[in-house]
Amino acid sequence: MERSQRQNGPGRNMSMAKPAGPTGPQSVDRALEILDAVADAPGPVGAKALARRLGCSLSTVYHLLGPLTARGHLVRTSAGYAPGPRVAALHRSYRRHLGLGPRIAELLPRLRRATGAEAYFTAYRDGRIVMIDSTVPVTDVAHPFAPGPETRAHATAHGKALLAALPRPARRRYLAEHGMARFTDRTITGAERFEAELARVRGQGYAVSIGEADPAFTCLATTLPERPGGADGVVHALSVSLPTGEFRRRHGEILAAVVRAASDAPW
């Protein structure tokens, strides 16, 4: 970061001046807070707003914004700071590392066309569950299931499918770390009942969540066969979501389409 600060300082030799903000691990942590704040915002964010959110001085924020914009993680617009072009490259790399190659990406729209339901590709790795991709348009910000870290795994079908596939110690660690919050009156929040639910998932080969994460939606999911050479601890799931009333009418058709798509996963 020091190199970027010297190259982008406001007309002075930054190597000879006292840094305007924190250094070391605190600086890294605050830079990541800035990235999170900009990513989570509905639009560009001004430096003053970032300083208020971080609870630090404006000079500290500018000290960190310099290298973040120089490296392309952020861009400065007339309305404030927004995600930069480097984010897209990181996103592609992340998807690639979690197994979302072009052929898997093509599977989601096919499943969407076959079922009329939104389709999702989710993965577990190293104690985290993340929705990697979906057919939901990026402009549909009101949709209850969006790509990114999954905070409701115990209440979603894809979360249940992935947790059911884990060894019990890994599953218990995950639930101890992330908890089992109640989102609707259908959410399972008891450990014993949840273990019974996962045993049922393993027995039938798929998971269902009827209004457990969102009262209006039902999800159905199943895990994908392991990738060839994929002994990296990553487990993948394919799922769909649709209004509960429609799911009840088309349960058999939806299940058959998801299972067929998962078995044909083109690794």
Rank of each mutant, 00 (worst) to 15 (best):
Gln7Phe: 06
Asn13Tyr: 03
Ser15Phe: 13
Ser15Asp: 15
Lys18Ile: 08
Lys18His: 04
Pro19Ile: 04
Pro19Val: 03
Asp36Arg: 04
Pro42Thr: 05
Pro44Leu: 04
Ala49Trp: 06
Leu50Asp: 07
Ala51Trp: 05
Gly55Trp: 09
Cys56Gly: 09
Arg71Leu: 15
His73Lys: 09
Thr77Ala: 06
Gly80Ser: 04
Tyr81His: 11
Leu90Met: 10
Leu90Cys: 08
Ser93Pro: 01
Ser93Met: 09
Arg96Lys: 10
His97Asn: 11
Leu98Asn: 06
Pro102Ala: 14
Leu107Lys: 02
Pro109Trp: 01
Ala114Arg: 08
Phe121Val: 04
Thr122Cys: 10
Met131Glu: 09
Asp133Tyr: 02
Ser134Ile: 08
Thr135Met: 04
Val136Asn: 02
Asp140Cys: 08
Val141Ala: 13
Val141Arg: 15
Ala142Ile: 05
Pro149Asn: 12
Ala153Pro: 07
His154Met: 09
Ala157Ser: 15
Leu166Thr: 04
Leu166Lys: 11
Pro167Tyr: 04
Arg168Phe: 00
Arg168Leu: 01
Ala170Tyr: 01
Arg172Lys: 02
Glu177Trp: 13
Glu177Ser: 10
Phe183Val: 01
Phe183Asp: 04
Arg193Glu: 10
Arg193Gln: 12
Ala196Gln: 09
Glu197Asn: 03
Leu198Asn: 05
Ala207Asn: 05
Glu212Asn: 02
Asp214Leu: 07
Pro225Glu: 06
Glu226Ala: 10
Pro228Phe: 10
Gly229Gln: 14
Gly233Ala: 05
His236Ile: 00
Ser241Pro: 13
Phe247Leu: 02
Leu255Glu: 08
Val259Gly: 03
Ala261Trp: 03
Ala262His: 07
Asp264Ala: 12
Pro266Phe: 03
